[in-house]
Amino acid sequence: MLEIQNLTVEIGGRRILNGINLNVEAGFKNVLFGPNGAGKSALLMTLMGFTGYKVVTGKIIFKGEDITNMSVYERAQMGLGIMTQRPPNMSGVKLRSLLDVISKNGSNYIELAETLDMVRFLDRDVNVGFSGGEIKRSELLQLSIQNPDMVLLDEPESGVDLVSIEQLGSTIKNLLTGGSKCAGKRRRHGKSALIITHTGQVLDYVDADRGFILCNGRVMCSGNPREMLDDIKTKGYVECVKCKMNYL
């Protein structure tokens, strides 16, 4: 579904990502771990094609096509969707009017807005004055209506209170699996995802397939996401860097 090949990225002339190789197979839900400032968000932003993330070398292949130089719009059209860590204030743009446009495909957003307790935000400017958790719910609402084939989630659970996390988690689960419970079907019909998490809470709702650790703009290793999370919880990322050094 998604192949990242030797991707090196600069922001404002500074190298942020260094020779990233990472795949997300169709239907796989992969997880990205790594310390603050590692470049996780930068990777997702680059995948979506946002301005400012300059690909110096390497390629991004999505659904077999090289999307490295495509516009954000073209990537979205191809079925890529994102929940960013820090979306911009959209003064004047009402959540309702945005959802009206996103739901051109005919999906109804009112029901989901109710589930996510977002109805009272419909006539507010998107993200303006939203709390951290409200931003996450609003982003997830938009993304679910957009219904992309491959979902990029940047710390979807961060800042979300213990009660809302249940709503949020199951909405993410629905978005990714389309409600299908059978593992085989999920693999074939479910969506692909690349999810950034620090706490791993989202893994309670998403059957993650593979984990990656990103440090200093490099992929350090990959493996079973739950085992990796346990390791990080007990040993932190220091081990990770050492391990990679031993490797080299």
Binding site: M48, G49, F50, T51, G52, S71, V72, Y73, R75, A76, Q77, G81, I82, T84, P87, P88, M90, S91, G92, V93, K94, S97, L98, V101, I102, D125, Q142, Q146
Partner: peptide
């Protein structure tokens, strides 16, 4: 802000539609 236009483009709006929506809101 470029960031605002691209935020909407990431939701599937063309650049034109995105600018139109921001201008209308403005």
């Amino acid at each position: 802000a470029r960031e605002q236009i691209e935020y909407l483009m990431a939701r599937g709006l063309t650049e034109e539609e995105a600018v139109g929506m921001i201008v209308r809101g403005f």
